[in-house]
Each structure stands twice: as C-alpha cells, then as structure tokens.
Amino acid sequence: MIADPYQVLGIDPSADSEAIRKRYLALVREFSPERAPERFAEIRAAYETLRDPVTSLGMRLFDVRFTETFDKLIADEKQQFCGKRIGTDVLLSLADV
C-alpha cells in the first residue's frame, strides 16, 4: 500500500506542521518536479497527506505510486473497491461497437 508519509519525508511523527513544511520545502528543492518528477510526486503526496486529514483519506483511496505494477495496484484498489460506496454505481459507458 501507500508508504508511510513520515517515512517518505524522513521526519519524526511528532513533527509539527511548521517542521513538516520546512522539511517538505527542503526536499522539493532537492527533488524538484523538473529534476526528479517521480520522487517529487511521492514527496508531494506525503506532504498533502500530512497537511490535510481529508486529502489524506483521498490519497489512500486513489493515489497510484509509480513503482507499483498494475496488478498490485488493481489488487489494492479492489480491496478498497468493496468499501467504496460509489463503486458499483460508477460504470463506464458502453462503447458504440
């Protein structure tokens, strides 16, 4: 599943929001979207998770990590799919073929 955001940011779980932000900015300078897009995406995701409990939940439901294979990802999604209320309502439209 998704990596522990504290681990991604390399920061202690007791860190306050100011410390989290400082750490996030330092990491973004090092792993910028230009230079290290994949690493940046991880850092950003971790930061958003810690920044906001609501997005945190969303992250856990929807985020895809670059390193994961589709199979593993589908397995993860599938696991959550059962619990996701919109699950069975959301259908792709039938193709005109």
């Binding site: 979207p33 897009p37 940046f40 995406a41 950003r44 929807f62 985020d63 895809v64 670059f66 990802l73 589908i74 999604e77 599938k78 799919f81 996701k84 699950g87 069975t88 959301v90 259908l91 792709l92 439209s93 039938l94 193709a95 005109d96 073929v97």
Partner: peptide, 24 residues
Amino acid sequence: TALPATRSELYSTMFQGQKAVEVK
C-alpha cells in the same frame, strides 16, 4: 493538483458479455 500527477479510478462494465468500453 500539483504537477506531475498520477491518479487512477476504478470503473466497471455495465452488461454481461460487454466486449468494449469507451473511455471518453
């Protein structure tokens, strides 16, 4: 959403025996 971004969502087919889905 900050860039670059990767997100996914799970959908399902509508009918039994459906041969194709159109992703629009």
